[in-house]
């Protein structure tokens, strides 16, 4: 068996392959197998957490397309999730439509709004864009609370269970496979978008928009496309969220949750699909970690009993955002790449 050497490719096609070597194919196969048997080896709670992470993954991948790859900061991502979730709920609960209509419909409606927001936002950059998307998010939240006839206001909306070929997917295990398929599809699609012309144009816009335009990248078109794609992902994620939760409420789609998605892609790694996955799983797992830690501390020090509070989670989010930006701007993805390279070159340093 040949020893794996440094990457070298003979054609451009080889260079952009998703799985470049036999080893990465094997590892990927093993990973997928692990995902498939997961519900049989763990308990329902873990499966539920994985379901939540898969929603977060789709949303984070969407935000990373806009913010990480195209460089357009968005502080209104959860507004697009809200639009997708409410569209899905209106179609699913109100009109009794099946999931294969509600989920794409949520995505499409959200993408349409994304385009409508993206066009006037074309002139804005950096801070100004962040402000515009933030105020958009706040306005959507206001509409959700105020337009009681459509959204149910503070009471929120209910969502039926997914109906797959006549069977209701009522357990977390059933939902798990359903969500796994959608998430996998969305990730593969994103991977493919990024390695084609469109993705390269996004990256060019991020790195130096004027230079990109000079080189023939249609700035208007690609910026609007990035907005549309990102909000489509958010819309689908919103629909998935509605199905998993069974009940949606304006409080699920606040400015804080937009910041949470930004935290995911910063902690995971900006401009990397794998990074968005890491970040999403990490952010979903962190509160659980804190809860466990708090329980441990409480059992050790009786004086700390009952001091745990949801507030600690948010504080840790803030702290993590700061720490990652200061000490590891590449995020978890950079750490992962370092580990990988370390193994590849072992026993040499480089």
């Amino acid at each position: 068996m040949p020893i794996r050497s440094k990457t070298f490719c003979e054609s451009y096609h080889d260079d952009i392959k998703l799985l470049d070597t036999i080893w990465s194919k094997c590892w990927m196969g093993l990973f997928i197998l692990g995902l498939l048997i997961l519900p049989y080896v763990t308990d329902t709670y873990i499966v539920y957490m994985v379901n939540l992470s898969s929603i977060a993954i789709v949303a984070a991948v969407g935000l990373n397309i806009l913010t990480g790859f195209t460089g357009q900061i968005s502080l209104g991502h959860s507004a697009f999730l809200a639009i997708g979730a409410y569209t899905a709920a209106l179609l699913g609960e109100g009109l009794g439509m099946p999931f294969w209509i509600t989920l794409p419909a949520g995505g499409v409606v959200s993408a349409t709004v994304g385009i409508l927001l993206g066009i006037p936002c074309l002139r804005l950059k950096g801070l100004y864009l962040a402000m515009a998307t933030m105020s958009f998010g706040i306005m959507v939240e206001y509409v959700l609370i105020t337009w009681k006839g459509l959204t149910g206001g503070e009471r929120g909306m209910y969502m039926p269970e997914v109906n797959m070929l006549g069977h209701a997917l009522d357990t977390d295990e059933n939902m798990y496979y359903f969500l796994l398929c959608i998430t996998a599809l969305m990730i593969i699609a994103a991977k493919n978008i990024i390695r084609t012309r469109v993705g390269r144009a996004f990256i060019a816009v991020r790195d130096r928009d004027i230079a990109a335009e000079v080189m023939g990248v249609n700035l208007t078109g690609y910026k609007v496309m990035a907005f549309a794609l990102s909000s489509f992902y958010a819309g689908v994620a919103g629909g998935m969220y509605a199905y998993v939760m069974g009940h949606i409420h304006p409080e699920h789609f606040t400015l804080l949750s937009s910041v949470e998605y930004l935290a995911m892609i910063i902690i995971g790694g900006l401009g990397s699909i794998l990074g968005s996955i890491f970040g999403a799983v990490f952010i979903v797992a962190v509160p659980e970690g804190i809860k466990l830690l708090a329980q441990g501390v409480e059992s050790l020090i009786p004086a700390m009993q009952g001091r745990y509070d949801e507030e600690w989670n948010i504080a840790v989010f803030g702290l993590l955002i700061m720490l990652f930006l200061i000490f590891e701007p590449g995020g978890l993805n950079a750490i992962w790449q370092r580990i990988k390279v370390g193994f590849k070159n072992w026993p040499f340093t480089y």
Binding site: L256, V259, L262, A263, I266, I314, A315, F317, G318, L319, L320, I321, M322, L325, I326
Partner: peptide
């Protein structure tokens, strides 16, 4: 982003 992190912290 750091100031956003700081604010929620």
């Amino acid at each position: 982003m750091v100031t956003i992190g700081l604010s929620i912290f």
